[in-house]
Design a protein around this nucleic acid. Structure first.
Length: 188
DNA sequence: GATAAGATGTTA
DNA sequence: AACATCTTATCA
């Protein structure tokens, strides 16, 4: 990872990290720690699998422009984009790119630190109590109870790049990234 | 182990 | 009607 400003603090990741090309952010998020603080205490897991979704990507919710749901993707980077899927699940993304350009990274799996069952996008939302109420909250500060911290670095040789899961549009794009050999990668 | 089907409600 | 999913059942 590059020496961004946030490295000075070795802690919470700031907006300049997210305000970049979506593919780069997706790859650099591997090894970062997702943190959730509620009345039940703190829950943490290391991000080990991500997928990128961009404005010119047929699989992206923002592909056909701004809608009530996709509006979040056009806002500033470093926000949570949480949506409801298949009638009973939530998925958690972080917004990327400068304001006005849609983009997001889907967090697909965590290596649990003090939580369980996080090897899938809907499972990790359930484990960390992430619901639609957290849509659009700012991930660059702790006040909403959801943020991401620097934690661990992976070299390119430890990162697998492959196709995304569970989509039909643009299924051939190699926009999924995961940590080689990690036991908590989502099942195909 | 692999494959199939069912649950369930929002979205455009 | 499709959907950026997961669980359970039914094979082998």
């Amino acid at each position: 990872m590059v020496d961004f400003e946030y490295n000075i603090y070795m802690g919470i990741i700031g907006r300049n990290f997210y305000n970049r090309n979506t593919l780069e952010v997706a790859k650099d998020l591997l090894g970062c720690k997702l943190c959730r603080f509620t009345e039940n205490g703190i829950q943490e897991g290391v991000i080990v699998e991500t997928e990128a979704y961009t404005h010119d990507d047929p699989a992206c919710h923002a592909y056909s422009g701004k809608t009530p749901r996709s509006i979040t993707l056009f806002k500033k980077s470093g926000l949570a984009y949480v949506y409801f899927i298949y009638g009973m699940y939530h998925c958690f993304n972080v917004t990327t790119e400068p304001e006005g350009i849609a983009g997001a990274v889907l967090i697909r799996a965590l290596e649990p630190l003090n939580i369980k069952d996080t090897n899938g996008p809907a499972k990790l939302c359930r484990a960390m109590n992430i619901t639609k109420e957290l849509n659009e909250v700012d991930l660059t500060c702790k006040k909403s109870g959801l943020w991401i911290e620097e934690f661990k670095h992976f070299d390119n040789s430890e990162i697998i790049t492959t196709t995304r899961i569970g989509i039909k549009q643009a299924a051939d794009y190699p926009w999924r990234f995961y940590v080689k050999g990690n036991k908590f990668i989502s099942k195909p």
